[in-house]
């Protein structure tokens, strides 16, 4: 439990830092740190496949995408002036929300744990993906195809005649 609490604190602090950071590059790096902490948590919950995906896709690929996008719009990083006050008070607001939720939502979450149903058999991850959740797989393939289509059409280059 102490380990979990430690990881949760890291993720929360890193998320607040990512929101408060003045530079987008720091926000992207903080997001990667949050992903690494989350993958450690998934290993703790004995979910190695999810942790592997989290580590490779979220901490790797998405961070690279963010950093490349930030480098492409670097000038705007300085130009967009926003009031800092709403981000500066975020730790205070988060603390207040945490206390509020600990008082009012915690008993509800406790009651939810009474609905636990332990399955008799537990199929493997691959078996679940291919057999039981094949509709998800179809959705994934569709959304990937749609994303490829969008990116291709956004960066369409007309041939000069």
């Amino acid at each position: 439990m102490t380990y979990n609490l430690f990881i949760y604190l890291i993720i929360t602090i890193v998320a607040i830092t990512a929101v408060m950071a003045r530079k987008m590059l720091i926000s992207a790096i903080m997001l990667a740190v949050a992903s690494i902490a989350l993958s450690l948590l998934m290993f703790k919950f004995s979910a190695p496949w999810a942790a592997l995906f989290e580590l490779s896709v979220c901490a790797g690929l998405i961070t690279v995408l963010f950093i490349s996008a930030v480098s492409l719009v670097k000038k705007e990083d300085m130009a967009l002036k926003e009031s800092r006050a709403k981000f500066t008070i975020l730790p205070l607001i988060s603390g207040a929300v945490f206390i509020f939720m600990a008082i009012f939502l915690m008993p509800y979450f406790e009651s939810l744990s009474g609905f636990t149903r332990n399955p008799e058999i537990q199929p493997k991850v691959g078996e679940i993906i291919w057999k039981f959740r094949s509709a998800d797989l179809l959705g994934q393939i569709t959304i990937l195809a749609a994303a490829v289509f969008v990116v291709k059409s956004v960066f369409y280059k007309r041939s000069e005649q």
Binding site: W49, A50, E54, V125, I128, I129, F132, R133
Partner: peptide
């Protein structure tokens, strides 16, 4: 956990 892993993926 395995179902949760599949959903997380």
């Amino acid at each position: 956990t395995n179902l949760a892993q599949a959903i997380i993926i």
